[in-house]
Nucleic acid binder design. Structure first.
Lengths: 230, 230
DNA sequence: TTTTGTATAATTGTATACAATCGTACAATG
DNA sequence: CATTGTACGATTGTATACAATTATACAAAA
C-alpha cells in the first residue's frame, strides 16, 4: 500500500501530467509494489483530482510498461526488477555506443559548447557536494548526447530508459563516491566528442556505463533488505 | 487532411484502444501528414465517439512519439520520416543481435517448437503467395525471439519499434519478392537457436536485418513520389 | 498603416453523470 | 453439502457539462 505525495500545488503543467509523474515516481521508488492494483477512484481521491486525469495517466503508464490494464478490471502495477535495471544497462552500452558515434559525426561547435557547459556545472556541484544536482547534470549530459545524435528514434528510446532508471541512478549516486568519478569520465567523453573522434568516444562511453552499472549493483547489494525493491 | 476508417464495429476491445489503433494507423500510413493538427472534437465526431477516448488515445500517441501535445493548444502529428526508419533498422541490428544471444542462452524445447511452428506457417503462406499473412508471420517470428530473450526492457523496446515500422515493412514486402527470401533466413536463425548457438544466430540475424533494410530502401526509391511519405 | 485592446469564438482541461461490466454474497435447488 | 442463479455493490467505460485558456476578428487610437 503506497502513499502518494500531494501534487505540486503551484504547478502550471496540466493535472494529467502531474498525476502521471507522481504515480510514475511512486512506482519507480517502490512505494507501489508489483502486483498492487490501482483503482481509479482511490487514486483520484488520494490525489485530490477527478478520475479523468488519473485515467489518462494510467493509460500512459501502460504504454511505458509500468502498469498493466485489464479491460473492465483495472490497472495493476508491473514495477521494475533488479534484472530489468541490469538489462537496461547492457542495452545502454550498445545504444549509447551508437549515440556517441552518430553525435561525433554531426557535432557542431555549439553542441560542443553546450556539452562543456554541462560538464563544468557538474564539476561545480561535485565540489559543493550537491549530490542531487550532480545526479541531474549526469542525466543532462547523457540526454544532450542523445539529442546530438540527431536520431529521433534513438533519442526517444534512450530518453525513455533514462526516465525508467532515474530512481535507481539516484540511489546509486547517493550511496557512494560514484558521482565524483563520473565527472572525469564525462570530461574525457566530451573531449573526444569535441575532436569528433567517434571511435574513442564510444570506447570511453561503454567503459563509463560499465562502471556505472557495477557501482549500481554494488549499491543494491549494500542496502539489500532495507527497502522493498531497491 | 487524412480520412479515418470507421472503427471495427463488432470489436470487443475498449473504444479507447480502437481509437488509438486507428489514429496510429492513419499516421503511420501517411494519411495524416506531419505537422497536421488533430483537434479532439473533429476526431471524435469523425470516429463517432466522444472526446474522452480520443483524448486518452492522443496522450498515448504522444508517449509513442507520433504526436506532440502542446498544453492548451492541441496535438500535432509528428510522423515518421525515411531517416527514422533507417535509424530503426540500424538500432534493430544491434538490439536483435542481443536478443538472439540472450534467447539462445535460455531457449527451452517448447520455445524452439513455437519458433518452428511460425517458420512452417511462413513457408505455407509463402507457397500460397499470401503476402498479408506472410508479413504477419514475419512479425510473429521476430516478436517470439524478443519474448524468448526473457528481458522485459528489450522486449518492450523492440516490440515498440516493430509496431512503429509495421506499415513500412508491409510496403516493402508487397513491393518485391523479399517476403519469400526472408523465410529461408528465418529458418537458418531458428536452426541456430535450436542448437543454442548464439554466436551463429546473431551473425545470421544481423545479416537478415541488413538485407531487409536494403530491400526496404529500394522499395522506397521505387515508389518515390507516389505517396506523401512513403 | 500599424498597433493594441477587447470581445467573441473555438479548443483544451477537468469534473461529473450515467451505462456497462465484473465480482461477490447469499439464497434457492438438487 | 455442493451447485447454480440472482441480486447487489464496486469498478471501469463512455458521454456530457462546465471551466479555463488560447486564438481570432475587429475596432479604436497612434
Amino acid at each position: 500500500m503506497g502513499k502518494l505525495k500531494t501534487l505540486e500545488e503551484n504547478g502550471t503543467a496540466p493535472l494529467q501530467v502531474r498525476v502521471f509523474e507522481e504515480i510514475e515516481r511512486a512506482i519507480l521508488s517502490g512505494e507501489f509494489g508489483s502486483g498492487e492494483s490501482l483503482a481509479e477512484l482511490k487514486l483520484s481521491s488520494e490525489l485530490g483530482v477527478s478520475r479523468t486525469p488519473v485515467r489518462e495517466a494510467l493509460r500512459q503508464l501502460e504504454l511505458e510498461g509500468l502498469v498493466k490494464i485489464i479491460p473492465n478490471k483495472g490497472a495493476v502495477v508491473v514495477g521494475v526488477t533488479e534484472k530489468d535495471i541490469e538489462d537496461i544497462y547492457v542495452i545502454r552500452m550498445r545504444m549509447e555506443d551508437l549515440a556517441v558515434r552518430w553525435a561525433a559525426g554531426s557535432m557542431t561547435a555549439e553542441d560542443a559548447k553546450a556539452l562543456w557547459d554541462i560538464v563544468e556545472l557538474q564539476e561545480f556541484y561535485a565540489q559543493k557536494g550537491d549530490t542531487e544536482r550532480l545526479c541531474e547534470m549526469d542525466g543532462a549530459f547523457h540526454e544532450a548526447i542523445y539529442c546530438f545524435s540527431r536520431s529521433k528514434p534513438l533519442n526517444h528510446m534512450l530518453t525513455g530508459f533514462h526516465h525508467y532508471i532515474r530512481h535507481a541512478r539516484s540511489v546509486s549516486f547517493k550511496a557512494s563516491g560514484r558521482a565524483q568519478a563520473s565527472v572525469g569520465e564525462h570530461r574525457a567523453i566530451a573531449e573526444a566528442l569535441s575532436h569528433r573522434d567517434g571511435e574513442e568516444a564510444a570506447r570511453l562511453m561503454v567503459d563509463h556505463i560499465e562502471k556505472a552499472k557495477e557501482n549500481l549493483l554494488k549499491a543494491f547489494k549494500q542496502q539489500e533488505g532495507k527497502d522493498d525493491i531497491f
